[in-house]
Computed example of a mutant assay.
Amino acid sequence: MYSRAEITKTKQDFWTAFGQYMKPVPSAEGGRINWQNYKTGVPQVFFRMKADRGFASIGIEINFKDLELQELVFEQFETFRKMLHGTLGEEWDWQLHTYDEYGKAASKIEKKLNGVSVMHQDDWPAIISFLKPRIIALDEFWSNVKPAFEGF
């Protein structure tokens, strides 16, 4: 069992290592970017990366409180589904209106890697190898479609 402080420190160490690993990688538009805290520039649309005990994941999260607006944005992403999967080179899971442990609704388009743990440094290369190409591909996809989402 890990203490809360150990978990927090290990996760911070992982994200620091990931940030250092990604630092030399430019965005699709050629500029510097904070990969771990990717800014989409569209309110309530986030690119989320998680490294936890048992899995790592990356995805697009849509968090509008208004569920109709959330669904509208999700449908807008669906119009770009082929382009997204083509850029990623794989299919992702699409979930309209999922609810977290606090009852908050979000819609997600994500990919998970099971069987890895951020608490095991031996798994870090696998987690980084999972996250890196996908966040780069998401950035490339976003640089092409972002204008279609700026009205939300």
Rank of each mutant, 00 (worst) to 15 (best):
E68H: 15
K108A: 01
L72V: 07
S57P: 00
S129T: 09
V145W: 11
E140D: 07
P24Q: 05
R4N: 08
Q121S: 06
G19K: 07
Q95H: 13
F55W: 14
K82F: 05
L67S: 14
F80D: 09
Y102I: 00
Q95G: 05
D123Q: 05
A51H: 04
M1R: 11
V25Q: 02
P24M: 03
T8W: 13
H85L: 03
A28L: 01
F141N: 08
R48A: 07
D13R: 12
G19W: 04
D100E: 04
G115T: 02
I33Y: 01
Q76K: 15
N34L: 11
G19L: 00
K65I: 11
S143K: 01
A126K: 15
L113C: 01
T79Q: 13
E110I: 03
T8R: 15
I135P: 02
N144F: 03
D100W: 05
N34V: 13
N37A: 12
A137P: 00
F77P: 15
T40A: 12
E61A: 12
H97R: 12
P43D: 03
F130N: 02
F46D: 15
S143V: 01
W142S: 01
S3I: 09
N63I: 10
S117Q: 04
H120R: 12
V42A: 10
I109W: 02
F80C: 10
K39A: 03
E71G: 12
Q121T: 14
E90D: 06
L69F: 08
K50F: 07
E78S: 10
S129E: 13
H120L: 05
I135Y: 04
I109Q: 05
K65S: 13
A126E: 13
P26D: 09
K108H: 11
L67P: 13
R53L: 01
P147E: 13
P125I: 06
L138V: 05
I58V: 14
F55S: 14
K9L: 15
P133F: 05
K23Q: 15
E6D: 14
T98L: 09
A148R: 13
Y38V: 15
R4E: 03
V73M: 02
K82D: 12
V25D: 05
V116M: 02
P24V: 06
M49G: 14
G103D: 07
T16N: 10
E150S: 13
W94L: 02
E140S: 04
P133C: 03
I135D: 08
G59E: 07
D122V: 04
E71M: 06
S117W: 02
D122P: 00
L88K: 09
I33G: 00
L84D: 03
K11T: 09
S107F: 08
Q20N: 15
E90M: 01
T8S: 14
Y99P: 03
H85Q: 15
K50D: 14
V73S: 06
E91P: 00
G89R: 06
G115Y: 01
A148I: 03
F141C: 02
P24L: 08
E75S: 04
T40V: 08
S57L: 04
R32L: 13
